[in-house]
Nucleic acid binder design. Structure first.
Lengths: 144, 144
DNA sequence: TTCCCTGCAAACACTTTGCAGGATC
DNA sequence: GATCCTGCAAAGTGTTTGCAGGGAA
């Protein structure tokens, strides 16, 4: 596959980078569409797949029926709020500690680890101070 | 909600437990259908949601467009093969090590961690010995 | 008897794909 | 000029839901 450098593809990548990550395909579509009104959602999906194959972008899936996309910078982990659905990065020294575990894991059953992901799900600070959610927990995430 | 104990619900739970975990809704449907030919897929989904609310079952999502279900036994982590899509559990002393990290994380930004997930993606032993995949990597997972 | 549950089928939401014209290398 | 790419619209796929009848407590 000989990839070409189209306006659309570049704009999509810019949108994700500009935003700092954690965008859905639909959100990317809305952003890029401002500059290119004739953009189609199909093009966004096709390019996201290409960008992922090229390694420019990473797919994230938190089990919320929607895939998020972010650019691949340094490794980091996610804090996912189950109330508001907010996603923030956690960039700490965890990486090092994780590496030890990864190496340990590589030995198990001959499994060859290529990548790993560690996500924490819970409640972010701002949602903790909200009025008690009346039984409607996780709806922000799972409402379909 | 006052849950009832129906044949279907029990059979679905049995199916997951019997299998050892990591079943898709469709697979569960096929298994339970053997004993209850009139079972509907909608019932499977509804019950999986109920069982998850009750805490009997846990949803797993590896970013593969499909949700897997497993019973909640002890905590464990997953080894996901990107070639064959196989999922195996890793039950080691990792839990302890992880806990330290989790506690550390709980302090960050006031984020209250409720659960975490750690998945390793790579190539399992049997796929490593297969003939080189001619460019078609990850298709077992991502083929849509 | 109450209310949860089921099967069925239609509806959904996100994502993919066929096609014909257009852009890039 | 050969390919890759785009917009459009239709089709897919996994999952959810409305309804009317059935079963558990």
């Amino acid at each position: 596959m000989n990839y070409r450098n189209t306006k659309q593809r570049q704009a999509i990548l810019d949108a994700i980078e500009g935003h700092g990550g954690h965008l859905t395909a639909e959100e990317i579509y809305q952003v890029v569409k401002l500059g290119q009104p004739r953009l189609s959602l199909g093009t966004v999906y096709r390019n996201l797949r290409v960008l992922a194959e090229q390694g420019s972008v990473r797919e994230l899936d938190f089990g919320m029926a929607i895939t998020y996309f972010e650019t691949i910078k340094d490794a980091h982990y996610h804090l996912v709020c189950r109330v508001c659905g907010g996603i923030s990065d956690m960039e700490t020294d965890l990486e090092q500690k994780l590496m030890a575990l990864v190496e340990h894991t590589s030995g198990i059953d001959g499994f060859q680890v290529e990548q790993h992901r560690l996500d924490f799900v819970g409640v972010c600070r701002s949602c903790q101070s909200k009025p008690v959610e009346a039984g409607g927990q996780a709806r922000a995430l799972k409402a379909r």
